[in-house]
Design a protein around this nucleic acid. Structure first.
Lengths: 258, 258
DNA sequence: CCAAAAGTGTTCTTTATACACCCATGG
DNA sequence: CCATGGGTGTATAAAGAACACTTTTGG
């Protein structure tokens, strides 16, 4: 959605294509530089950072909508994507807001009764993606994007800070039952990398030896013959996920402590 | 909602009061007779059993709507109520269905474009309630109700069997992180009762001695001086939840194994 | 040869599991 | 006095936590 014509049509007639009162907000986690990051978009006019999101087509299954929205935004096909909460309590989501504001800022004339300004509940999804594979597409409303460190999220639009908090809490809880990493790390990685990922997500230190022992003994990762040259230091071995064991653990759940 | 007039108004004008395309389905768990049960309603006309549910008022916070719906149905004020999933994938939820059917069965004339027959996503909540304190209110659409054993749920309307399954799965997962029982048991209970509750929810046997040891050592329950007379057997002691420890465990989570 | 990061085992402590007998009660 | 369900402890096994030194590498 980039041309003024398209945008106009979306604003004026979007309610014919999309379900009103409902949107999807995506918290997209990536991992880079030893930091867990999320992707935020800069909304022009509203002058603030917000989550990528979108609407559900009238006859589109919900989970398909969530995938489509993410795919359109990041160009990723395969990703871990999971619903985690519906947000419908915050006063922001109750306001029928800012039609005027919108008109002023975008130069589009819309009425107070426009579908975009009715009360909207938001279904939160979170995704775990390989940072390096994402190519972000911006559009008319969102001219800029940036990966933000989760410990340093700016004030977001509406109640989206709460959405991010809840996504993080869900991820941290889930890591005790399911493996993560397959979608956050490149295919081959070092022990140091996955170790640091887990420390980052959990926000605490994990014993190096115990951690490696655990992952290997669970059969989730396997050591490759390959090593990686990393400058004037000993070369670490590369590891890879055991896909079958990983998928099993995802489905059946495990009880971890790390 | 009982008089024909009220029902007519709800069908014809409900969309002015409620958000369209969205409903709340409640899976209400109760525990009785050593069985985990859920409350189902018999929908007249549709000729089937279904979950209690309702709609969200246009300016009503989501969680408040969930509480209201449950409160109206069960007369309970304090209960454990938790959102667990949004259902928007099943083909049932895509069908704009049965306006004709409806007209035939209820004798109300409604059009195909009536708000009740548009695609509806459902937000699933589950509640844990003290079976003995519930007094169920029926209405025009639901003339009968019954508590069903979770292992013996009949085919439900739409995709509601899936909703029940997911609620159960969520409850079973959650029991590993949070205590349950405070809302399922009467205030004072015996070790045998709570033990059997946990066995029922988890669907497996738990060692009697280890179970009691664990709950007491976690400080979740405390033994009272009182005993209960139970016929020609040794009288069991009564126990009570330690509210503070219980609430803490709810908030902060625990790692159980039982 | 040195700075920096990698790799690797053992001990101790805590937690979980398995298991069986005596006790109290009312009829 | 007896049938029934209640109550309790200990020993073993498994899992988690704590802990430090040697190796490799390129500059």
């Amino acid at each position: 959605m980039n041309s003024e014509e398209e945008v106009n049509d979306f604003v004026k007639n979007g309610h014919q294509q999309y379900l009103p009162h409902l949107s999807i907000d995506s918290v997209i986690f990536g991992y880079h530089d030893q930091q867990l990051k999320i992707l935020l978009l800069k909304w022009i006019g509203l002058d603030g950072w917000g989550l990528p999101g979108g609407f559900i087509r009238r006859r589109e299954p919900l989970s398909q909508a969530a995938h489509r929205i993410l795919q359109e935004r990041t160009s990723l096909e395969d990703l871990f994507l999971q619903q985690f909460h519906v947000f419908g309590d915050s006063p922001y989501r109750l306001q029928e807001r800012s039609a005027r504001e919108f008109t002023e800022k975008y130069g589009l004339v819309v009425g107070d009764d426009n579908w975009l300004f009715e009360r909207t509940l938001s279904i939160g999804y979170f995704a775990l993606v390989d940072y390096s594979k994402v190519s972000v597409r911006t559009d008319f409303f969102t001219t800029d994007y940036r990966w933000w460190d989760v410990s340093d999220i700016p004030p977001l639009l509406f109640d989206q800070n709460e959405v991010v908090e809840k996504a993080l809490a869900t991820l941290r809880l889930q890591i005790y039952h399911q493996p993560i990493g397959l979608n956050l790390l490149p295919e081959k990685f070092t022990l140091a990398e996955i170790h640091s990922l887990y420390e980052t997500v959990l926000g605490k230190e994990l014993d190096q030896r115990n951690f490696a022992k655990k992952l290997v003994s669970l059969g989730l990762i396997k050591k490759l013959a390959e090593q990686r040259a990393i400058g004037p230091h000993r070369s670490p071995y590369l590891y890879q996920f055991e896909k079958e064991a990983y998928e099993d653990a995802l489905k059946q759940g495990i009880v971890h402590t790390y």
